[in-house]
Design a protein around this nucleic acid. Structure first.
Lengths: 225, 225
DNA sequence: TCAAAAGTGTTAAGTTTACACCCATGA
DNA sequence: TCATGGGTGTAAACTTAACACTTTTGA
C-alpha cells in the first residue's frame, strides 16, 4: 500500500520433499502432474503462498492437502530464486521437507493427487529444479537426524531395534554395526524398552521400543545415532 | 501471465547479516534506518528482489551497494515468511550472511548508508525479526566454519596463527588451546607458512600464513579447526 | 631487564571401530 | 532340525583434551 509501492511482487510457492520409510528404504511421495506446465511429468508436491497464511503455514496446508495429516515434522530447507527456474512464469520457491509415518497417510487423497511413493534411490527425472531440492533436503535431513531425534517421525510409535537400525542405515546410506548401534541406543534414556514383543518380523520375537520425548527434553545427554 | 493468474504475488526481499572480524571480535555491519518504516532504528541491510535478478543476485547487489564489494562469500540462511513480520506491508524475506575482510570495504558508501560496525555481543535492539535472523546466521556460520575453510574470508590474505586462533575463538565463542590449535593447523596442507614476518602484533615477530584454496581443493583431508 | 606475544611435545582420557557367537522360535 | 532374525562384550585404534616452559625483541 504505502511504503513499498515502487517495488514489484513475485509469486511465492512452497515445495515439499516428503520422506517415508518402507521396506528398509527411504521413499519420497511424488506427483505425476495433472496440469500444465509440465503435465505428465514427476514433481514434488507444491502450492502457492496465499494472502492470509505465512510461508510455513502454506507448506503445512499443502502437506495436509496431499496426505490428510496435520502436525507433521517439517523443516525449511532452502529457497530457490533463479529467474527462470519455472519456465511458465517466475516463481520463488521455498522448499521444506516433511517426515511421515508411511502407515498413516490418507490413501484416498494421495490417490486423487496422482501421487506415489518412490524409492529415493530410484527417483525418476523431476521437473524444473526439483531434483536439486530433493538432494538438499536429503542432505539436510541426514545431518539433522544424526544429532536430533527426528527419525522417529518416520516410524510407528513402537518399533524394534532392528527396524530403527534399518532406518538409520537408509538415512546414512551405509551399514551400521549392530552391536555398536545397540550400545548407543542403550545409552540413550529417551529410547525406552516396552514390555511388548513384536512377532511379525521374526520367529523369536523382538522387544518393542518407544521414543520418549519428555525424557529427551529433560536429559542433557546429546542425541547421537 | 498464463498458468498462475489466479494466485497472488508477494514482495520478496533479501536481508544480509554481514560479518567482519576486528579487535578479536566478530562484528556486524548494521544500518540506522533513514526511512520509514522504523526510521531511526537499527536493522540489517536489505532490499527488494527486482524483476531481472535472481534472489541470490539481489543479495549480491544489496551487499555491493553497501560495501562496494563484489564476490563476497555469501550463503543463504533461511526465509522468513510470517504474515506480519514487517508491520508496513507483507514481505517475505530471504536472509543471507556474508563474510567480509573488514579492511577492504568502501567506507564512503557505508557512511552514506548510515551503517556501522557493531560488536556482535553488543548488538542493539533490531527491527522486526532481524535479531532472529542474526542468531540463525551466526549459528549457521559457526557450523560451516568448523568444517569448511570459510573463515579466511574474514582475514587479510596473510595472517598470523594467533590472529587465526582469535578468529576461531570469536566464531566459537570459547577459548582454544594454543598448542592443540597449532597442531591442527600444521596438519592442514592448505594453510601455508610464508617467509614473511609480521612485526605489528609483537616485538618478537610472528610468521605470516596464507590459505591456499588450490591445495585445499586437491587434498582430500577434511578441514577441521 | 622486563613485559608481551611466539613457539613448541607428551600423556591421559575418551571415543570409535572391529569383530563372532549363542538364543529362541516357527515352519 | 534348521533357517531366521534377536541379542550380547571386549580389545585395539584413534581422537581429543590437558598442560608449562623457553624464545625473541622493543621499550
Amino acid at each position: 500500500m504505502s511504503y513499498y509501492h515502487s517495488e514489484i511482487k513475485h509469486y511465492v510457492a512452497v515445495d515439499c520433499v516428503i520422506f517415508g520409510f518402507q521396506q528398509g528404504s527411504l521413499h519420497l511421495l511424488l506427483l505425476k502432474r495433472k496440469m500444465e506446465p509440465a503435465q505428465g511429468q514427476w514433481s514434488l508436491m507444491g502450492g502457492f503462498v496465499r494472502e492470509g497464511e505465512s510461508v510455513d503455514e502454506a507448506a503445512k496446508r499443502v502437506l495436509a492437502e496431499l496426505t490428510g495429516l496435520e502436525n507433521l515434522y517439517m523443516e525449511q530447507v532452502h529457497t530457490f530464486g533463479a529467474i527462470d527456474r519455472d519456465p511458465g512464469e517466475r516463481v520463488v520457491s521455498v522448499v521444506y521437507y516433511a517426515l511421515i509415518n508411511i502407515d498413516e497417510y490418507d490413501r484416498e487423497s494421495v490417490h486423487q493427487h496422482n501421487a506415489y511413493w518412490v524409492n529415493i534411490d530410484e527417483v525418476p527425472p523431476l521437473i524444473f529444479d526439483h531434483e536439486e531440492m530433493v538432494a538438499m533436503a536429503r542432505e539436510k535431513m541426514k545431518q539433522k537426524a544424526a544429532r536430533e531425534p527426528i527419525g522417529f517421525n518416520l516410524l510407528p510409535e513402537l518399533f524394534t531395534l532392528t527396524r530403527l537400525q534399518n532406518l538409520y542405515e537408509a538415512i546414512y546410506g551405509e551399514a551400521i554395526d549392530k552391536r555398536n548401534f545397540r550400545k548407543r541406543v542403550a545409552e540413550m534414556d529417551c529410547i525406552e524398552k516396552t514390555d511388548k514383543i513384536d512377532k511379525e518380523s521374526s520367529k523369536r520375537g523382538a522387544s518393542l521400543y518407544r521414543f520418549n520425548a519428555n525424557v529427551y527434553r529433560h536429559t542433557n545427554t546429546k542425541f547421537k545415532l
